[in-house]
């Protein structure tokens, strides 16, 4: 999953401090692997350098100064391009896809289009593997079958998520 794009997507709803960003990330996507503070600050420094976020304000505190970050127009364009770009079909994509779907719903983008784009990409690879399997030897067939069953699991997840989009939209925006 692209941490940078995810943090940018979370910033679309309004400026946040690094700590707020980490908390929002962990609440929505970090169930198994919460973000380390160091990773948040190093990512924000990179986004700042690339002009994708800007410092919206600095609050002095007891400890180090707290920067509040806001997404720039270039940042919004970058998130948009990331959400539209289908992932390279490979096993165990659910974490990235789930993140993209939730961010699309949170930012008012068409999540159904995102799922269908990904679905088309998966099927393209499944067709390629099926063609290879038809002309290949038994070893080829078994290797292709393994990949096909994994891709099929992803596709079933995409289908189920598409059927539950309304429900998910209510859950993430409530």
């Amino acid at each position: 999953m692209s941490i940078g794009h995810t943090l940018l997507g979370l910033l679309e709803s309004g400026p946040r401090h690094g700590y707020d960003l980490k908390r929002a990330f962990d609440e929505r996507f970090g169930h198994d692997r919460p973000l380390a503070y160091g990773q948040v600050y190093s990512t924000m420094a990179r986004l700042l350098k690339n002009g994708l976020v800007e410092v919206d304000g600095i609050e002095p505190g007891g400890g180090p100064e707290r920067k509040r970050y806001a997404i720039t127009d270039a940042g919004i364009t970058d998130v948009d391009a990331w959400l539209r770009q289908p992932e390279k079909p490979e096993p165990y994509l659910q974490t990235t896809l789930y993140t993209k779907v939730v961010l699309a719903l949170l930012t008012g983008r068409p999540a159904a289009d995102l799922l269908d784009t990904q679905r088309a990409e998966h099927l393209r690879l499944m067709r390629e593997l099926t063609r290879r399997k038809k002309s290949g030897d038994l070893a080829d067939q078994l290797i292709c079958d393994h990949a096909l069953f994994h891709l099929e699991a992803d596709l079933r997840w995409l289908e189920l998520t598409a059927a539950r989009l309304d429900q998910l939209a209510k859950a993430v925006t409530s």
Binding site: D113, D116, T117, R119, A120, H122, L123, M126, R127, L129, T130, L148, F149, L151, E152, L155, R156, A162, A163
Partner: peptide
């Protein structure tokens, strides 16, 4: 999906409406 992978292209039907994935 593994059966659909034998096709040249795919149409998805949801709630009685069709969608050509090539157009998406």
């Amino acid at each position: 999906p593994r059966v659909a992978a034998y096709s040249d292209r795919e149409i998805v039907v949801r709630d009685g409406k069709s969608r050509d994935l090539e157009q998406v």
